[in-house]
């Protein structure tokens, strides 16, 4: 997949990859050229979101963990209270955006082609197709993949990583780079727990703590509309925190990949 093919050169950032031999830049001793270009674009996106008072959530998981169903249930639960919009990322089809639009919420589909993750430039392009005015929460549903999306800051305020109980409860141990970035881990499809005797929620949480990640863990079944209140409360609390915060708090940016954090970071601050 992305291991050797360079698929993270997407249509959004190809112009950066191509000017390989650009002159006139000063030498730097950090080799994050392509990703630091992404980081700069992400910071631009974040300023844009902050300017509109929009709380932006990056949803990440393996394919089929239930990101789109979670969004549908969330919209049903909160649409009378909060104005929501969605950016969908998939390799192909408009299917997910169509599902969101059917709920009466604006959605823009990014079709990535072969790229297995979203990057900040693709999100920036998507913003030209939608308005942020009056929005409360923008969800960015990343491409289903537990590897690549972890490395690309989109400008989000929080990362939410879904782990469905039909997967292994050791996923955080298998994908540490991804689960280290989670500001909230959502265990989904929990209505199936009674018939799945090999998934232990406590073990999943233990694997997350072993990554030194203090993120809260919530259980939820979007299909049975179970556990949505705690999830909604978390969203409300984070929205209030982002809106009330001064720039210094926003700059903590817990959702950013750890690699981009300052050398001496403050301890990760968790919301409610």
């Amino acid at each position: 997949m992305c291991d050797t093919c360079g698929c993270n050169v997407t249509h959004g950032n190809a112009h950066l990859a191509e000017k390989k031999n650009a002159q006139g830049h000063s030498a730097v001793s950090v080799l994050t050229d392509l990703l630091s270009a992404n980081d700069r674009q992400a910071a631009h996106n974040r300023r844009h979101f902050d300017g509109h008072g929009v709380f932006v959530v990056n949803l990440m998981s393996a394919p089929g963990a239930g990101k789109t169903l979670l969004l549908e249930a969330t919209i049903d639960a909160l649409k009378d209270e909060l104005r929501i919009a969605v950016i969908e990322g998939d390799l192909e089809t408009e299917n997910d955006a169509a599902r969101i639009r059917a709920k009466g919420v604006p959605a823009h589909q990014i079709v990535t082609g072969t790229a297995c993750h979203l990057d900040a430039h693709m999100v920036h392009d998507a913003l030209h197709h939608m308005t942020l005015d009056g929005l409360d929460i923008l969800f960015i549903e990343n491409v289903g993949n537990l590897v690549c999306p972890a490395s690309f800051d989109l400008g989000q305020h929080r990362n939410v990583t879904l782990l469905s109980v039909t997967e292994g409860d050791d996923k955080p141990a298998k994908y540490p780079v991804m689960f280290r970035t989670a500001d909230l881990m959502l265990l989904t499809k929990t209505d199936l727990l009674p018939v799945l005797d090999d998934f232990d929620p406590a073990r999943a949480e233990g694997a997350l703590r072993a990554l030194a990640n203090p993120a809260p863990v919530l259980r939820l079944s979007a299909k049975k509309r179970d556990g949505l209140e705690a999830w909604s409360d978390w969203l409300r609390a984070q929205l209030a925190r982002i809106r009330a915060s001064d720039p210094a708090i926003r700059a903590e940016i817990p959702g950013r990949p750890p690699r981009f954090r300052p050398v001496n970071p403050k301890p990760a601050t968790q919301g409610v």
Binding site: T4, G6, V9, K20, D33, L35, C148
Partner: peptide, 11 residues
């Protein structure tokens, strides 16, 4: 992951 483009950034 992303090793080819990381290489390009390096170069």
């Amino acid at each position: 992951m992303h090793e080819l483009s990381v290489c390009q950034g390096l170069l």
